[in-house]
Amino acid sequence: MTRILKVGLVGWGAIGRVVGTALAQGEIEGAELTSIVDNRPLGEAAPAPQVTFEEAIDGCDLIVEAAGQGVVREWGERVLSSGTDLLVASTGALTDDELAKRLLAAGPGRVYFTGGAVGGLDLLQAVRQLGPLDEVRLTTTKLPSTLEQPWMDEELLARMRSATGPVEVMAGTARDVPVKFPKSTNVAASVALAVGDLDAVRVQVVADPGATRTRHVVEASGTHGAYRFEVAHAPDPGNPATSQVVPYAVLRSLAALAGRTGQIL
């Protein structure tokens, strides 16, 4: 008899609703939604029981995080030490070296992450085996309103709000940027995890009032070759800070973990 992967979902927002609905409708063979964790009452519309985090851990094989970096920081180790696996959508949390080390050392549960809104990560991981990349750059372009943060001063906010073209909001490394944009730059962390070096990935965040699509451009080069990946996603209508494709990347990861065959992993 085929074992069914019992999934607990944390977060019923733009990502969680799509993932949870697909699971509840049986779209992921070998996986079922057993519970939902959210700090808001979901009512009868929820396709699975709304439970506490502790109850979700006790009743499932895999926790899917779809609620932000804070969940990974607060609950990641507890999930893994209980023996439950963890699939992380908010990869920006893993740019915290100490947290990443603790998660990797925790167990017996296993931690996985999804590439989310960017492609080419499998190729970067393969190239990395040949030797270090000399240069890795990521340029992320989004609507100004999706990039506004509490730490920004009035001058920067005014430039973003009055911009008629692209404006650089921040430049730094994949270690620096996800901390400053916890809900909108997980791609930087995903690229860095594939490359294996947070400080090697240079990141530029650009606000563009004409950005009808969220754009990510990854450029990497080394002695073994040069690589360029560009994606332009429609933003999620309910949460423009998230690309519409992200929950489907989570579902693809879930399908792989549930053991569905006949796909490229």
Rank of each mutant, 00 (worst) to 15 (best):
V111W: 05
T95E: 07
A67H: 05
R110K: 12
V127K: 15
V72Y: 04
A126M: 14
G68T: 06
E135C: 15
G109D: 01
P47G: 00
G119W: 13
V71K: 00
L62I: 09
R128W: 03
A46S: 09
L87R: 05
P144H: 02
A93G: 02
W75V: 14
L147A: 00
L143R: 15
G116Q: 09
L103A: 03
L94E: 05
L42P: 01
G59Q: 08
L94N: 08
W75F: 09
E135L: 15
V79K: 03
E44A: 15
G107F: 01
G119R: 06
R137H: 07
D134F: 10
V71W: 04
Q125A: 12
V79R: 00
E65V: 07
P41A: 04
T52C: 10
V72M: 05
E44N: 11
L62V: 11
S145H: 08
L80R: 03
T139D: 06
T146C: 09
L62Y: 08
G70D: 08
F113I: 08
T140N: 00
S82R: 11
E54G: 10
A117H: 14
C60W: 02
M152N: 02
E74F: 13
V88G: 02
K101S: 14
D122P: 06
C60A: 07
C60S: 02
P144N: 05
E65W: 07
D58L: 12
P49C: 07
F113H: 12
G120Q: 06
D134R: 13
G120T: 05
